[in-house]
């Protein structure tokens, strides 16, 4: 499903000086897998996600997602690619001037889904994340946990084959955090490939899923049913 082949990504720090966010990373995530990526901040987790969503381009190596070779992807095809991937951003990235319903329906409208269908699918996904009663609220009126669930609902509403969640439990208390994790597990059971990054030791240890440990831009460990050891 997701395939990284000797991928290196450098960021320009200052005049001519570059630091490597990812260096020579090779990894393979199979369809319907649930993968947790752990690592300290600066280890390369966000870079990994940005590469998958094609927010940035790899400097070296190749990225394939869903059979598409990113090095051959044209700019005008990027929007269509992003519609196949659901991303839950660390800072939620909700549209402040749209209410909960509109934020979620936007992800459907961009791909030209009929209004009739939008009206069916959005309430369903709101029910899944337990936000039926907040449909008319604006993001600023929601708590962190609620915003996180809106972000998940938006990432899921168009039935993506891949769901990427960047620190989805980052700012949440344990009860809320587990609520989010349960949603991700349910989606995974329904056949979506899920990749999440986290700092949360407790979650990693209890989930017993595949864990990829990143350190200084390199894959340090990659274990099935792994535990937190970053």
């Amino acid at each position: 499903m997701i395939y990284f082949e000797h991928v290196t990504k450098k960021y320009e720090q200052s005049e001519g000086e570059k630091t490597e966010a990812l260096s020579d990373v090779t990894l393979h995530i199979k369809p319907k897998e649930f993968v947790i990526v752990v690592g300290h901040s600066g280890a390369g987790k966000s870079t990994l996600i940005k590469l998958i969503n094609r927010e940035i381009k790899a400097d070296e190596g190749k990225v394939y997602v869903g059979g598409i070779d990113y090095s051959e992807l044209k700019k005008r095809d990027i929007p269509y690619l992003r519609r196949k991937i659901g991303v839950v951003f660390q800072d939620y990235k909700l549209l402040p001037k749209k209410n909960v319903f509109e934020n979620i329906s936007y992800a459907l409208e961009v791909s030209g889904v009929k209004t009739k269908d939008v009206k069916i699918r959005v309430p369903k996904i709101l029910e899944l994340v337990g936000l039926q009663k907040k449909a008319k609220n604006f993001p600023r009126e929601l708590s962190g946990g609620e915003r996180q669930r809106v972000a998940i609902a938006r990432a899921l509403v168009h039935n993506p084959r891949i769901l990427i969640a960047d620190e989805p439990t980052g700012n949440l208390d344990p009860r809320n955090a587990w609520g989010i994790i349960e949603i991700l597990l349910r989606v995974n059971q329904l056949g979506t490939t899920v990749m999440m990054t986290t700092h949360n030791q407790d979650i990693v240890n209890k989930l017993k899923k595949r864990v990829i440990v990143l350190q200084n831009g390199k894959v340090l460990k990659d274990k099935e049913a792994g535990a937190y050891e970053a």
Binding site: V87, F89, L94, A107, V110
Partner: peptide, 18 residues
């Protein structure tokens, strides 16, 4: 002022014309 909004729209797969 809405640059961020536009960036978000792009990230969820909106085409420039949309």
């Amino acid at each position: 002022a809405r640059k961020e909004e536009i960036d978000i729209m792009k990230l969820v797969g909106a085409t420039p014309s949309f």
